[in-house]
Computed example of a mutant assay.
Amino acid sequence: MSPLLLIAVGIGGALGALCRSKTTGFLKARIHSDFPAATLIINLCSCTLAGIALAVQANLNEVFYLAATMGFLGGFSTLSTMNYEAVELVLGGKRTLGAGYLAATYVSTLGAAAVGFALASVIL
């Protein structure tokens, strides 16, 4: 990977992580639940955008595409937080909620990526 790509992905990742932090705080202040809805919403948004990006990839500059997908969306989405929250629920005695959270996340984020891809394919 060229130095330009490394820098672009790094900047994208830093911006994505900052946006995730702000979005998480915003959502958690408004959603009061044992269910980790903020992380699920962020991951759904990220996967939808990744699907859109995949559909339009041929029309994008490689540096922009990688900065947006590997960088920004990689920093915005949060697999590690999702797994941590699921384990936290299980260890807290909420096994069903933890398992439901994992199932809901994996199924819905795959669906979100497919929806994003389909929408972008139809519109463009």
Rank of each mutant, 00 (worst) to 15 (best):
P3A: 06
P3V: 14
L6N: 14
I7Q: 14
A8F: 09
I11E: 05
G13I: 11
L15N: 13
A17F: 01
R20A: 01
S21I: 00
S21A: 06
K22A: 09
T24W: 00
K28D: 10
K28L: 14
A29T: 03
S33C: 01
D34L: 08
D34W: 12
L40A: 03
I41P: 03
I42S: 01
N43T: 10
C45S: 15
T48S: 09
T48N: 10
L49V: 04
L49W: 00
I52W: 04
L54G: 13
A55K: 10
V56W: 00
L60P: 11
E62F: 09
E62I: 08
Y65I: 12
L66T: 08
A68M: 13
G71T: 15
L73Q: 14
G74D: 13
G74R: 11
G75T: 06
G75H: 08
G75S: 11
F76A: 02
S77M: 01
S80Y: 06
N83P: 04
Y84R: 07
A86W: 00
V87S: 11
E88Y: 13
L89S: 12
G92W: 02
G93T: 09
G93A: 04
L97Y: 06
L97P: 15
G98M: 10
Y101M: 08
Y101Q: 03
Y101F: 12
G111Q: 08
A113T: 05
V115A: 09
G116A: 12
A120C: 06
S121V: 02
I123F: 05
L124H: 06
L124S: 13
L124K: 10
